[in-house]
Amino acid sequence: MQTKDVNYITNRSALNKLALAMLEHYRYWLWEKNLVKTLPSIRQMQMRCRNFDEALQRIACSQGLLLK
């Protein structure tokens, strides 16, 4: 990512951190609810979110809006 716009860089960085925090929260939620035996890696969680419906479900669960 190459740009000279400071606002774009700042906003993009904030959105990336938010997305990673949501994935982190969701994977620990899965582990606490015993829905997975081992804690999945962030990379595994990112790969699962390539499907739009699954990504939307993970966002909702990470925010406490949807219970699995």
Score class of each variant (00 low, 15 high):
S41Q: 07
I59N: 00
A21S: 07
K37P: 00
L66V: 07
T10L: 14
C49R: 11
L20Y: 10
Q63K: 10
S13G: 04
A60T: 00
K4S: 09
A60Y: 03
C49D: 02
R12G: 02
V36E: 12
R48K: 08
A21C: 01
Q63T: 15
A19S: 10
R12M: 04
D53F: 07
L18G: 05
S13E: 12
L30S: 07
S41Y: 11
M47D: 04
L56P: 00
S62M: 01
N7S: 03
R12A: 12
L67A: 07
F52R: 12
A55C: 15
Q2W: 10
G64H: 09
S62Y: 00
H25G: 02
T3Q: 02
Q63A: 15
L23E: 00
L65V: 03
C49E: 01
L65F: 13
S13W: 01
Q46S: 07
S62C: 11
W29N: 15
Y26W: 05
H25E: 14
R27Q: 12
D5N: 14
L56N: 10
L67D: 14
H25M: 03
Q44M: 05
Y8P: 00
S13N: 05
A60K: 13
K17A: 13
S41M: 04
H25Y: 07
K4A: 10
T38A: 09
P40V: 07
L67I: 12
M22Q: 10
Q44A: 14
L35C: 02
A55I: 01
Y26H: 08
A60P: 04
K37C: 07
A21G: 12
L56G: 13
C61M: 11
A14Q: 09
R43S: 10
N11H: 05
S13H: 03
R58F: 15
C61F: 05
T10I: 09
Y8T: 01
Y26I: 02
H25R: 14
P40A: 12
R27L: 11
Q46E: 10
I9D: 02
W29Q: 11
D53I: 08
K68W: 10
I42Q: 14
Y26D: 00
M22T: 00
Y26F: 05
L23D: 00
N51E: 13
L18F: 03
L18A: 15
E32L: 06
K68R: 11
M22K: 14
I42R: 11
N16P: 00
E24W: 03
K33D: 01
Y28D: 07
R27C: 02
A14I: 10
V6M: 13
N51I: 08
R27W: 04
I42G: 08
H25W: 01
E54H: 11
E54S: 03
R50L: 11
M1A: 15
L35H: 05
L30T: 09
E54M: 10
L30C: 12
E32V: 03
I59T: 00
S62W: 00
C61E: 15
M45W: 05
S13V: 02
C61K: 00
G64K: 15
P40Q: 08
K17V: 06
K4W: 04
L65D: 06
N11M: 06
T3L: 04
D5E: 11
E24S: 08
